[in-house]
Amino acid sequence: MNSDYSLDFLKRLAKGISAQFGRNCEVVIHDLSSGHVDYPIIFIENGHVTHRTTSTSASRVVLNALKHVSDSLEDKLNYLTKTHDGKILKSSTIYIRDNQNKPMGIFSINYDITELTIAKNCIDSLLSHKEDIKNADKIPQNVNQLLEDLLEESVKKIGKPVALMTKEQKIQAIQFLNDAGAFLITKAGDKIADFFSISKYSIYNYVDIKNKF
């Protein structure tokens, strides 16, 4: 690279990124100015991620940069790569250009996400379930809360607010509550009657009606 000042900045940037994200983050500076593929790596942090050093030969990204017209080269961010020993890396490739927009180097970041991928798979397995979380039963802290949850569920079963329910729909809702055991809760009849704006006498009549709807 032509500028020692620019190279010094890039090295400090590489050290900063690798320090910020830890030992799993490899940062590499490739020099393209020589036009040769024999040892293009001029600086590397956490080279153990890909087992590379400044004595390592070119990678495919270097060959691509040397082979193709500079105007066709675009930075590539947040893509997946892998090592020969099976590590999965999240990578980014940024071209370093001179005043004429010609690529003079490559700044690469390779973050080893192998362990994170294994952890994610374990977490996904633990969190997997057959039901939609929206339909999950609530765990009440007391019987009053239990009754409120059942009333809420009865409204969802009908699909409209109580004020818009027909008599038949209220019968369906109340029979759902009866099947769910809501009337086993002390004084549930009074609260259910108030909730549906009907008399307690009507409540028990509705319970006795066979659900024909």
Rank of each mutant, 00 (worst) to 15 (best):
T117P: 00
K90P: 02
G35I: 10
F195Q: 10
A19G: 05
S72L: 14
N205L: 07
E168R: 13
E26A: 02
S125N: 12
K157D: 00
K11A: 00
F9N: 01
I203S: 06
K212Y: 07
L89C: 11
E26P: 04
K157G: 00
N142K: 09
N178T: 08
L63M: 11
Q145A: 07
N205S: 12
S55E: 14
N78K: 06
K134E: 02
H51D: 15
H48T: 12
T166I: 05
K187Q: 14
F195R: 11
S55T: 07
G105T: 08
C122P: 00
G16H: 10
S18I: 08
D31P: 02
R97G: 04
G189F: 00
L63F: 13
A182T: 11
D75Q: 02
I17P: 08
H30W: 05
G47P: 12
Q20W: 01
Y206N: 10
I88P: 01
F183D: 05
D71L: 06
I29M: 03
F213R: 06
V62A: 07
Y111M: 12
K200H: 06
D179I: 07
F213W: 04
Q175K: 13
L13D: 03
A182N: 08
K134P: 00
I139M: 14
T186W: 06
K11M: 11
I158Y: 01
I44K: 05
R52C: 03
T56E: 04
D190V: 12
H68S: 13
K15T: 10
Q100K: 12
I123L: 15
N142H: 15
L177E: 08
L89P: 10
K187V: 07
L73D: 01
N78T: 02
N46I: 01
